[in-house]
Amino acid sequence: MREHLPDEKSGEPVIQLKNVQFSFDKVLVLKDVNLVINRGDFVAIIGPNGGGKTTLIKIMLGLLKPDAGTVLLLGKPPVKSCRQAGYMPQYATGEKDFPIKVIDVVLLGLLGTTGWRPFFSASERQKAEKCLDMVGMLPLSMKKVGELSGGQLQRTLLARALVSEPEILFLDEPMANIDVGGQTMLFDLLAKLNEEMTIVFVTHDVGLLSRHVKSVVCVNQKVFFHPAAEITPDMAYMLMGEKCSMDLIAHGVPHRVLGHHNHHDHNDNDSLKQQDKGR
C-alpha cells in the first residue's frame, strides 16, 4: 500500500486553474475553482452527476471558456497547448453508421502533427497499430466502428488519445462500458502510462479509485483537491448521500475508507453538509 504525501510530488505544475468560474445558460456550474495538478500525477475527478466533472476537464482542454479566471495547461493557455494533451471523450459523437474503420479513428489522433496529404503515411499507420495493440484492439483494426461494442469503442478512443504521445491524458468516464476484468486491465495499462504522462480521469463511481490513483479531485460546483487516494466523509457527502456511502463500504476503497478529513476548505465543506441535511 503506497502513501502519497504531498511533498513527494515535486513535479512542476502542468494544470493550473485560478479563480475559475463557469456557468451554462446562466446556471452556475463551477465556482471559485483553484486547482494545481503536477506532472506525473494520476488524478481521479469524482463528483455527482451534473456536478461539473466533464465541464472541468473541458475547461482544462480549452473546449469551454470560463466566465472568469485563468487556465494554464503546460504553462500556456489551453488553446496553444491542447495538442500536447490526449483526450478521450465520454461518448463518441459520431453516429453508429459513420463509415470509418477502427484504425482510421486512431489515425485521426495524429491530426495537428501530420502533413497536408489526404492520407496517412506507413509510419503513422504503424504508430496507430502500436496503440491499438496496447489497448488490445489490434485484431479488430479493420472493423467499422459501428460494429464495435461499447467497451471496444472506448478502447479505440483511448488508442486515438494515445497515438500522439501526449504529456497529459484526459479521460472522461473511461470505465463506463467496460466490465470489471477489463477495468482492472485498463487501470494497469494507465498505471504503466502514468510513468511517462500525467493522467486525469473523470468517474462517477468511487468504487473505481484503484490503488494506482495518486490524488482525488472532488467536484460539486466547488472543487477540492485531495493529495491522496482516499475518500473522506466530506467527499462522501459530495457524492450524494447514503447510496454512495453504502457503495464505499461495500466495494472497499483500498485504504482508509472514510478516513478523517483535515483539509483546509472548511467553509465549503460545512455548506455542503448543510446542503446534505436539507435533502
Binding site: 480549452g62 491542447c82 489522433g109 492520407f119
Partner: peptide, 20 residues
C-alpha cells in the same frame, strides 16, 4: 486537401478541436 480535417470534425468535433 481538407479530407482528414473534414473527416475528423464530422466524426468528433470536440476531439478535433483538441487536436488544434
Amino acid at each position: 486537401y481538407f479530407y482528414k480535417e473534414l473527416l475528423s470534425t464530422s466524426y468528433d468535433r470536440e476531439f478535433s478541436q483538441v487536436r488544434g
